[in-house]
Amino acid sequence: MDRARQRGPYAKTAARRADIIRAARDSFAERGYEGASLRDIAKRAGITHAGLLHHFQNKDEVLTAVLAQRDDEEWERSLAEVDGQSSPRRYLTETLLQHQRAPELMRLWAELTAAASRPGHPAHAYFVDRHERVRSHTAEAMREREAEGRLPEGLDPDSAAALFLAVLHGLQVQWLLNQDLDIIAPLDHFLDLVLLPVGREASTETPA
């Protein structure tokens, strides 16, 4: 009975936070970070401004929660794609297209990533952990491809992972500056250079 009673308030709090994050995601996507207000987010979530402040101290905390949720969703989807043996290229293409449908969130992600590089930023620890998790996961995937003979000779898995993440993030920033830019084709070309098809000898496919 005691345990059941403890679950009630916790579940209610988690549900309320989820409502706030959903409302904030809509508000940020429509109005941008500067245009969105905590009062607007609270109204969308169906609570008072004071009620929102019970869960989040400021707008920076709300934004971090929104972007962390988006990151978690994409992480879970990427794991499901791997388990389902789906094409990594198709997953990456779908992810980029999804980001392009919400450019304001993509812009906020880029801005917060840069700001959180400062050790004193409240989201610094989260982004450091997130970067290491993604880098480690990508490097492991590259090691699997190296074992299959699918990395060019002289390119180690850690370097391949760093290059891949730099290209993926850099292309999105370029698109934010010019939304007529095609970033899917350049990503495909990069993958062609880094990931050799199965059965081809890496030593014979490395450009001179």
Score class of each variant (00 low, 15 high):
residue 78 S to D: 00
residue 86 S to I: 04
residue 128 V to S: 08
residue 133 R to N: 09
residue 107 R to Y: 01
residue 87 S to M: 08
residue 49 H to F: 06
residue 107 R to H: 07
residue 134 V to H: 09
residue 27 S to Y: 00
residue 121 H to P: 02
residue 50 A to I: 09
residue 119 P to K: 08
residue 105 L to E: 02
residue 147 A to P: 05
residue 119 P to H: 13
residue 74 E to L: 11
residue 86 S to Q: 07
residue 82 V to F: 08
residue 88 P to L: 11
residue 125 A to H: 10
residue 140 E to R: 09
residue 25 R to N: 01
residue 138 T to S: 04
residue 34 E to Q: 15
residue 31 R to Q: 13
residue 30 E to F: 04
residue 122 P to E: 02
residue 129 D to V: 02
residue 110 A to S: 14
residue 153 E to K: 13
residue 123 A to G: 02
residue 99 H to G: 11
residue 133 R to S: 12
residue 111 E to M: 10
residue 145 R to F: 10
residue 131 H to L: 10
residue 70 R to E: 06
residue 132 E to L: 13
residue 74 E to T: 07
residue 55 H to W: 04
residue 106 M to V: 11
residue 88 P to V: 14
residue 67 L to P: 07
residue 74 E to Q: 09
residue 151 L to V: 08
residue 70 R to Q: 08
residue 62 V to M: 10
residue 83 D to W: 10
residue 69 Q to M: 09
residue 133 R to D: 04
residue 29 A to N: 09
residue 124 H to T: 08
residue 61 E to L: 03
residue 38 L to G: 03
residue 153 E to W: 14
residue 48 T to A: 09
residue 94 E to R: 11
residue 134 V to M: 12
residue 85 Q to F: 05
residue 100 Q to M: 12
residue 144 E to P: 01
residue 55 H to M: 08
residue 129 D to N: 15
residue 24 A to P: 01
residue 75 W to N: 07
residue 131 H to Y: 14
residue 130 R to D: 07
residue 119 P to F: 13
residue 153 E to Y: 10
residue 135 R to A: 15
residue 139 A to H: 04
residue 96 L to Y: 10
residue 46 G to C: 05
residue 57 Q to C: 00
residue 115 A to M: 00
residue 67 L to T: 01
residue 68 A to Y: 09
residue 45 A to K: 11
residue 127 F to L: 15
residue 133 R to P: 06
residue 127 F to E: 11
residue 70 R to V: 06
residue 36 A to K: 06
residue 123 A to N: 03
residue 44 R to Y: 12
residue 100 Q to E: 02
